[in-house]
Structures are given as structure tokens and as C-alpha cells.
Amino acid sequence: MDYFIELFLGGLTRGSIYALIALGYTMVYGIIQLINFAHGEIYMLGAFTALIVAGILTMLGWNQVAILVIASIVAVVYSAAYGFTIEKIAYKPLRQAPRLSALISAIGMSMFLQYYVLLAQTSNFLPFPNLIPDFKFLEPIEHIVRSSEIVIYATTAIVMVLLTGLIKFTKIGKAMRATAQDRDMAMLVGVDVNKVISMTFIVGSATAALGGVLIASHTGQINYYIGFIAGIKAFVAAVLGGIGSMPGAVLGSLVLGMSESFFTGYISSDYEDVFAFLFLVFTLIFRPSGILGRTDTDKV
């Protein structure tokens, strides 16, 4: 039973991290119908920025919580800036182009960013300092759930609520929904579509960066490649939940995280990634619109 709970909580952790990345995927897809391949790289950049900031502050002898807060803020700001810039360089000129062109551009961007970090930093795994303090009240159940996991669950829940609020109740959220429904019509009624798209990239990237900081501090190591697999899996989660739908992205992430955790725990850990990809293939074949997505037909 303990093993089951351990796997369950492990799955919840994975799922939460996937959710933080998948939210960005799904928002961008909802608005410009682009699979932002470079999104996983944003997450990786967030983790690297946090590592650099945390490294400097640790050497200056700051206390743990202050480092966590500052490193997260810097990582979020930088990742948002990267997201914004990437959109301007690689996607904006291709808005009227076929979707395939934008996708190829996104793949190129993803590759560029990976090798940019590889060349500017290192190809090795870097140890990431544990930024999350150990909570006193968790000591009795420490063998089941670590405090970093609690922080991950809480952050995901808070981000989810905040984003839902942003989309539902603010002016920019309304503009986002309008742009997602019909970009030309939104433009006609005076929505600044460029601003909305930039904003979407900024918000999505910031969320991914938060995921990057948390998972890096949970697993304790990062390298330039972490964004690729995480990005693909978050994409699987977003598709599973129904791409374009925010609750769908979170639900899909949790389902994927849990099933991955149980699969590796009970069946085989060698084929962990194979399992995720098979999950994707079967979802797309049998229910391409996902769990919460709506089916749409091709418009002529």
C-alpha cells in the first residue's frame, strides 16, 4: 500500500510539472494554432537562469527562502522575455504562412536554443541546489512525500487558479478568448491581436519557467536536454486533455503523470518514454480532440 501511495504521489508531482508546461502549450495553440516546439526549451532556460542566480546568491550566503523567491522571479522574468522574443523572431513573420512553415520554424528555434545553452554553458548534468526548505510538520511522513512535492502541488494549484482568473475575468483574458475564437473578427472589433499573442507567450513562458525551477530543485540536476522530453510529454498531456482547453491541459497532465508513474513502478522503467509516446499515438488515433476538447471540422 505504501508503494502505491508513493507511486500515486510521484505521479501527482510529474503531472503537476507537466501541467505547468502544458498550460503554455495549450494557450499558444488555442490562440495561433501553432505547436510551439520551443516551449520545452523555455522551461529549460528557466531552470538554467534559476541555477545561475541561485549559485551566485548561495555563494553570497543568503538564506534559502530568499534565494528561492529571487531565483524564481528572475527565471520567470527571463523566460517570459525569451518567449516574447522568440515569438517576434520566429513566429510573427509566419502568421499568414502555412502551418507547416511555422512548425518547422519552431523546430529550428527549439534546436537553436538547446545548442545555445549547450555551447554557452555545458553539456554535462549540473547539480541544482535544493532551494525548497524542509518543512518541520512533514517530518513524520517524510518517507512518503517530500516537502518539495508539497510545494509543487501548491504552486500548480495556485497558478491554475490565477490563470483561470486571468482568462475569465480580466480584459486581456477576454481579448485572448476573442482572438482564439476568431482572430480576424477580434481585430475588427478593436482587439490588438499582436499584443494579445505576445501576452500569451509571456504568460505561458512564465508558467513553464516556474515548472523548470521547481522540478530542477526537486530532482537536483539539470542539463540542456531536459526541455525536449519534458516539452514533448507536456504536449502529449495537452493533446490528451484537449488542446486549447486549460482545464483539459491540467487534467491531461495528471492522467499522464499518474499512468506513467504506475507504469514505471509496476511494469518496466526502461520503456517509460515509449509508454508516453504510445499514449500520445493512441489518443490521437482514437480521440484526437482529447478528453475535454471540442471536435472541430475543417473550414473551407
Binding site: 507547416l100 515509449v274 500520445l280 499515438v281 488515433i285 484526437p288
Partner: peptide
């Protein structure tokens, strides 16, 4: 056969998935 019904960008991801599955196997 199963994946060609999919839209262009989904197809890209599924083929990527297949490629990785074969390599991992």
C-alpha cells in the same frame, strides 16, 4: 495507416513519437 488521417501538425508529433519509440526499443 492509422496516423495519416490526422491533421498536419499532429502528424508531425505522432511520427516523432514513432521515431523515438523505435529508437528506444
Amino acid at each position: 495507416f492509422p496516423v495519416l488521417r490526422l491533421r498536419g501538425d499532429y502528424l508531425a508529433i505522432v511520427t516523432l513519437g514513432f521515431g523515438e519509440i523505435i529508437r528506444l526499443i
